[in-house]
Design a protein around this nucleic acid. Structure first.
Length: 461
RNA sequence: UCCCGAGUAGCGCAGCGGUAGCGCAGGUGACUGUUAAUCACUUGGUCGUAGGUUCGAAUCCUACCUCGGGAGCCA
């Protein structure tokens, strides 16, 4: 049994075997040692009582340090002391490995998240990172549950792609070239025809285009995979490698898309509140004493929906002065989004119908010919957690918009085929998993909610 | 990439022109069904790097490096 099961079972008198890592050891002159063991199954440790009658008490138990790994066989008993209702009386303890306390960096003391980032291979052994890992897992699991329950098909969109898709930012080049001897054409340009795929290829920045192909066949699909952006962005909410969830639904319009986004966010947050209450209590106590309340509120109330035009109007008429100008046609800056969601409404906000000039070519042009059916879901603190839209399903309109921004119709012919043959209205969005984890755990830096973060100038472990 | 801020013992920090200190961790001892145990003692630092100013620099100046926060880009 793992420690979570033992603590929940309350089977007094039962024999158990448990394994884990020592969080602390206290010795008593009464002839026993208290060993708190954690195995990551839950936030809580279990207290193991090691009597000095154990054959290896002097030789091994008294040498157990924080971080040592052990296996315990013993009996579950009621604890005579305060602090825990049950504990395990050890009948034998096997030591797998010690952790020299002069060298092991995790001791009973405060450590900063920045320092822990430098020991990312050991930080999962802390309360915070254990809790983050479990919450992240719950968000992933409930994501699959949410979509599966609604008849979506899980789609594995390609990681390597040849489409220089949607200008979603700088891409990582994928090549097998010997970079010190790159083949050149007669014009001294890189000869990608001699590369592995015979053309220039990159890591995906979005599975959306491929998801559209499958949505226009299976009706409802979602992708959930790694995404790569080579943008030189150094912030608390950007990573070069992150995980994105992208549902795509045929016959949905923008309204249905917003409904889906809200339902999805509320559902996965609720499942974290329901299934990770101990971890959430920890974040509430240690990081943000309003987070559980905030999340509960979000689960139970509709997101505020307003058009871009309405958002501009609110910003123009608000008493706050902004660093960046506010006007129709200009994109909303971070400070504007934050004002809307953190100060004005103090809850999640969905802004929709943006000017076409500031949004991607595939977003459906509205009848006003000025705006597109785009939507961004904004959350307090993390900002944009979802970007999505109803897609342009009209072949002529889509072709025209692509030509306007000089996209090659030939290269995207397969994408245009989707409109050429049996086109249908459809919509979807992308949600950054890490931003969701960040929001739910209330941790300030996205680098602390992914096991091994990758960002400019940093790819350790 | 730009704008701020910070780099002092393993970790968290104070010192801000006179030659380095506190807390925690570690070590030793005492005490204890203990619980971030407690108490006493104790190890440990060429103050990010390289220059410069000064009789004298952790403290002032310059450059660089690293980290953090904010901005842009976005998920």
């Amino acid at each position: 049994m793992n420690i979570k099961q033992i603590l929940n079972s309350n089977q007094i008198g039962e024999s158990v075997k448990l394994s884990g890592w020592v969080r602390t050891r206290r010795d008593s002159k009464a002839g026993l040692s208290f060993i708190e063991v954690n195995d990551g199954s839950c936030l809580k440790n279990i207290q193991v009582i090691a009597p000095n009658t154990l054959s290896n008490y002097e030789s091994e138990i008294l040498k157990l340090t924080i971080g040592s790994s052990i296996e315990v066989n013993g009996k579950i008993v009621e604890s005579p002391a305060k602090g825990q209702s049950i504990e395990v009386n050890a009948e034998n303890i096997k030591v797998f490995g010690y952790a020299d306390s002069e060298e092991y960096p995790l001791q009973k003391k405060k450590t900063s998240l920045e320092f822990l980032r430098s020991i990312a291979h050991l930080r999962p052994r802390t309360n915070t990172f254990g809790a983050v890992a479990r919450v992240r897992n719950e968000l992933s699991l409930s994501t699959h549950k949410f979509f599966q329950d609604r008849g979506f098909v899980y789609l594995n969109s390609p990681i390597i792609t040849a489409s220089d898709c949607e200008g979603a930012g700088q891409m990582f080049n994928v090549t097998t070239f010997d970079l010190s001897h790159i083949p050149l054409t007669d014009n001294k340009e890189i000869d990608y025809s001699r590369d592995f795929f015979g053309k220039r290829t990159n890591l995906t920045v979005s599975g959306q285009l491929e998801a559209e192909a499958y949505a226009l066949a299976l009706s409802k699909v979602y992708t959930f995979g790694p995404t790569f952006r080579a943008e030189n962005s150094n912030t608390t909410r950007h990573l070069a490698e992150f995980w994105m969830i992208e549902p795509e639904v045929a016959f949905n319009d923008l309204e249905a898309n917003m409904d889906l986004a809200q339902d999805y966010i509320q559902t996965i947050i609720k499942s974290v509140l329901d299934n990770c209450s101990q971890d959430m209590q920890f974040f509430n106590e240690r990081y943000d004493n309003t987070i559980v309340e905030t999340l509960s509120h979000i689960v139970n109330s509709n997101f505020r929906r307003l058009s871009y035009t309405q958002a501009i109007s609110i910003l123009e008429n608000c008493p706050k002065t902004f660093e960046f100008p506010v006007a129709f046609g200009l994109d909303l800056q971070s400070e504007h989004e934050r004002y809307l969601t953190e100060e004005h409404f103090k809850e999640p906000v969905i802004v929709y119908n943006y000017p076409k000039e500031i949004k991607a070519f595939y977003m459906r042009l509205n009848d006003d010919d000025k705006t597109v059916a785009a939507m961004d879901v904004l959350l307090p603190k993390v900002g944009e957690i979802i970007g999505g839209s109803q897609r342009e399903e009209r072949l002529d309109v889509l072709s025209r918009r692509m030509q306007e921004i000089n996209l090659s119709l030939e290269e995207y012919s397969w994408y245009l085929d989707l409109r050429r043959f049996g086109t249908a209205p459809h919509a979807g969005f992308g949600l950054g998993l890490e931003r969701m984890v960040q929001f739910v755990t209330s941790l300030g830096n996205i680098r602390d909610v992914i096991p091994f973060p990758r960002y400019p100038e940093y790819c350790e472990f």
